[in-house]
Design a protein around this nucleic acid. Structure first.
Lengths: 238, 238
DNA sequence: TTTCATTTGTCCGTATGTATC
DNA sequence: CGATACATACGGACAAATGAA
């Protein structure tokens, strides 16, 4: 229930029903007809997504997530949700859809042994006709037995949820700067050596079983990856 | 109080008192002599740092965070804590320590008007004799009236905490790829055009007032910025 | 400066639901 | 199936910060 309330609050923020700050807990309690604790749990969720900052004695203030004109991807929304804002406008060209065996890197990150079977998907994604990102994804075949080409052209996470009831519970995120690798150059025909902002994610579901490892390289030189960190902590920070 | 319990649980994990999983909530309730709600809030904090995975009906399992060959800065630890691991080994060369007036960019992010007085600190930081990062920081003079050269050579946040009782409560983080700007080239004598992983942070204290805007450019081409994102969410993700 | 109502932060006890084993 | 363990929700109490009178 508090999930639904959280979703609704986020919706109100997006629709600018709430502009500068949220109504007080008392007002929200009244509005949603639930206890204060439930409201607070809902607000916790919204805060965790970096949309609010909380001020004791004052209220909840809405964060403006912008970097001037530069495009921003909010990673605090959690895996799968981060891209949703742009996801509907993205088109995907599937450059590879194949079974492979885990190498050292993949085995390390997926907590499996070398040689375990994986599905490899390489996609070039476009936004408004512009190259947006290139994404290498590896799925554990023990979890995701099969992926159709049609699914790979759309939202894979959606298909995985539909067919295997797997959705992302949490994720580890690594951000670095890289260039395209040989396979990516060959299949895209892009041969320049540009440094690309790169996001590597290990996605976990349910009991925190890693089921997916993906590396996304963004072509847009202006792109910003955003996330919010808060200090839950009272004190010191020494 | 639940902060202290969270800290203690983390300590027990680090000391391997708890190896595979945590004691049950009932046992922890008994051990710390607090209510179950308080235990759960403490555990929430530990989870948020990515140290635990929670399994309904089963228990809390300790995450084994795998190490990588590439150097990693863990930003999930929260603002101010992220750099602590390396901070003590960093030496800082202060390239600029001056009063400036806020420009458009700074005003936007610090939620102030153009022309407000700021302190600008430009530091070149080294790790084991190697260039590690270059950091531009702007402090609101209304909050931080003065910074000494000695403080700038050490930990500025520590000095700010000591002199003004200001510590970071939460932060907005933007990660992008940039190159050095003119002032940075001039003052460092570095004139190549390398793409650098760049972290822009707006730091808040008292949860509401932005007091610092800093941009850090990392020289290490292998560096990874890490953070953990969890889904608090039960369900769907549609 | 003090006072006071508002608002968020913390903690408690209890009850019920649901997943795991 | 029953026992255990985590998830959700309610209601109440007091503390602490804010902001306006």
């Amino acid at each position: 229930m508090y999930h639904d309330i959280a979703d609704d609050i986020i919706k109100q923020i997006n629709e600018q029903t709430y502009v500068d700050k949220l109504p007080s807990e008392a007002q929200l309690t009244d509005h949603y007809q639930v206890s204060r604790n439930t409201i607070r749990k809902a607000i916790d969720e919204v805060c965790q997504q970096g949309l609010l900052r909380r001020v004791k004695g004052s209220g909840y203030y809405i964060n403006q997530i912008t970097m001037h004109d530069a495009p921003v991807v909010n990673l605090s929304l959690g895996a799968g949700k981060a891209m949703r804002a742009v996801d509907s406008h993205l088109t995907s060209t599937v450059l590879a859809l194949e079974d492979v065996l885990a190498n050292q890197f993949q085995a390390n990150h997926l907590h499996i042994t070398i040689g375990e079977p994986l599905i490899h998907v390489l996609r070039l994604r476009q936004l408004n006709g512009q190259r947006y990102c290139i994404e290498d994804s590896y799925y554990l075949k023990t979890q995701v037995a099969q992926l159709s080409l049609a699914d790979a052209q759309q939202s894979i996470f959606h298909a995985v949820k539909r067919d295997y009831d797997i959705s992302v519970n949490n994720a580890e995120n690594y951000i670095s700067v890289t260039t395209l690798n040989d396979q990516q150059r060959q299949l895209t025909g892009i041969h320049d050596d540009h440094a690309l902002l790169t996001l590597t994610q290990i996605n976990y579901y349910g009991n925190n079983i890693a089921f997916n490892l993906s590396t996304t390289k963004f072509f847009n030189a202006d792109l910003n990856l955003y996330f919010h960190s808060s200090q839950t902590f009272g004190g010191d920070s020494k």
